[in-house]
Write a protein that binds this DNA or RNA. Structure first.
Lengths: 193, 193
DNA sequence: ACCTGAACACCGTTCAAGT
DNA sequence: ACCTGAACACCGTTCAAGT
């Protein structure tokens, strides 16, 4: 005879967990990284303490909700490494990042997590950083990227733009494009004699 | 005989107002644009309702605290219009803006206010926008500014960077400089034949 | 007119009590 | 082990009552 009660409890716990996670998906999409945890638990039909038991920190919950998006960015970066134009590959990837953050509230925040939440593998920040670094290095070698560009600066800039446009997705592209092209242009070296 | 009671009351009200404003200066410097209004009133030694009576909205209070900084940015823009190098003048002003927002929490937010709070003159956003526009136009005419730059894009970008670095002032310059120089560099037109 | 303290409706987090 | 509802300490805002 299996220990039915015990198993039922665990199954129920798992069901609760899944419900909270599904609800979190919806609410985070609505409200972004600062979604009300109280509301998530309320809508999921559980006490708020149950949510805290399953997901001790906001970061942990947010990462579970958005990690596949982060991984998608990494995958797309890998693909773009095969692009014959290294500068455009970098610019394209930045546009992809911005577009995805603009349509997935909370993603910009999740991308910055530096510590790996229990059992989730490498921190999101590290994943994204590694992806960005490869694209940047290749673009620099091709002379298509400003050699002063530092990975961390670029990621922080992307994060700044993504956060600022999180609720105005239509603005995201314009700001990123501005940063990509630069504001001041060096004058073309005219034959000034 | 002057109406002493009446005058005393008004004087006391004014004193309360001044105290709240002075306290707001301190607390906003500590906590930024989302400083706790409750704490400001608590520290000023008045009830929170008194604060709301004098300063009906957070925006109104924040603008009173930071408007002179905004005006200082406008003044410095005017000065830089006389700089012989239009491109550098623009870049310098952007650095000044970023530096000031990085050392004055809340300023980035105050700069975006689009509606003029009662009796404060033109909205901060308009003031800053006009200043930026002049610098941009001149730099474009000199060929020292990317002709695609739109004033509103640039201001939003500055706001994004300023907000993101509000509590990490040391990062502010690096991000702004990156945006100014641009990320992808067009290859110099090598005689490739 | 102006101020005050209390009240209201929220929030995130913790905890004692239940099964 | 897991869940629940209540409690706690906050917050911004409004309001009735006082002078």
């Amino acid at each position: 005879m299996p220990p039915t009660t015990e198993k039922r409890l665990r199954a129920h716990a798992r069901r609760n967990r899944d419900t909270i996670l599904a609800t979190a998906h919806v609410v985070v999409r609505e409200q972004g990284a600062n979604a009300s945890l109280e509301e998530i638990s309320r809508r999921a039909g559980v006490g708020s303490a149950t949510l805290y038991r399953h997901f001790p920190t906001r970061a942990y919950l947010l990462e579970l909700v958005l990690r596949d998006r982060v991984e998608s960015l990494v995958t797309q970066a890998e693909t773009l490494l095969a692009d014959p134009a290294p500068g455009e590959a970098l610019a394209d990837w930045l546009r992809i990042v911005i577009d995805l953050t603009a349509t997935n509230p909370g993603l910009a925040t999740a991308m910055t997590y530096r510590t790996s939440e229990a059992g989730l593998g490498e921190p999101c920040r590290d994943l994204v950083r590694a992806a960005a670094e490869k694209l940047i290095t290749r673009a620099k070698q091709a002379g298509a990227c400003n050699p002063d560009v530092q990975v961390d600066d670029l990621l922080d800039l992307v994060h700044a733009i993504a956060t600022a446009t999180e609720h105005h997705p239509a603005r995201a592209d314009a700001l990123m494009l501005l940063a990509v092209k630069g504001i001041t242009t060096p004058l073309p070296p005219l034959p000034e004699d």
